[in-house]
Amino acid sequence: MSMFGQVYVKDNKYKLKGEFHHLTPNTPIRDADDNWKLLGVTNPRDMTFIHSYGGEAIFFESLSQGKLMATRCDQDGCDSKGTIYIPFRTHCPDCLGKNSVIDLTDIAKTTAKVHTFMVCERSGAFNVLEKPIKFINIEFDGVATILMSYLSLGEPEFNMEVVPIFKTTGPTFTILDLSWVPKGTSESQLPEGFTF
C-alpha cells in the first residue's frame, strides 16, 4: 500500500512525501446500440492538492483545541470598527485594515441560536458527514454574520439554542472539526472525538 501524500514546510518550502496521484488506465466508451462503436474514453484523475490556510490557519488550529475564533475590525476611523466576523475575515471588508483575532468561544456557548437550517438527504462525492446532513446557520449576539455549520444531535428548528463542539481527538483540521448540539446535551452523548 502506497503512502498518502503528506506535506510539511521547512525553510518556507513545501516538503512532500508519499503519493500525490494514482494511476488508473483509460478505458473506451462504446455504443451498445450501434455495433459497439467507439464514442469516447474515460479519463481517471485522482490528485492531492496542497492548500495554505494563510491568515485563517489559526481558526482551524484553534478548533482542534476546543476554541472558536473570529475576527474584528479595530481600526480607528473605520465605519465598521467593532464589527465581528465569523467566518473569518483576515481584513475588514470596509477599510481593508488587518482585523484582530478574537476568541468567540464563550459568546458562542452562551448566545448561539439557529437562524435557519436544512436537513439534506443528498451529498456530493467525497462527503464524510453522516446523512441526512443537518445544516444549520448560526447567529451570535453582537456578531454581524451568520455562520454555516452542521448539527450533530437533535432536530434543528428556528431559534434553537445550540452550543459548539470540537473534534479535539483526531482532528481533520477542516471546518468539519466544528459542530453543534442542542444546549443541555451531556458530554457522554457527543459523537466520537468531539468535546465541548
Binding site: E56, P87, T116, C120, G124, I133, M148
Partner: peptide
C-alpha cells in the same frame, strides 16, 4: 455535485457535504 460544490467557499462551506443544494436550501427554508 462535488464539482458544483467547489463554487462555494472551499474552506468554510464545501467540506460540509459537498452539496451545493444544502447551502442554498437553508435560504429557502428561511
Amino acid at each position: 455535485n462535488f464539482l458544483i460544490s467547489c463554487a462555494a467557499d472551499k474552506d468554510w462551506e464545501s467540506p460540509l457535504g459537498h452539496i451545493y443544494t444544502g447551502y442554498y436550501a437553508v435560504m429557502a427554508q428561511r
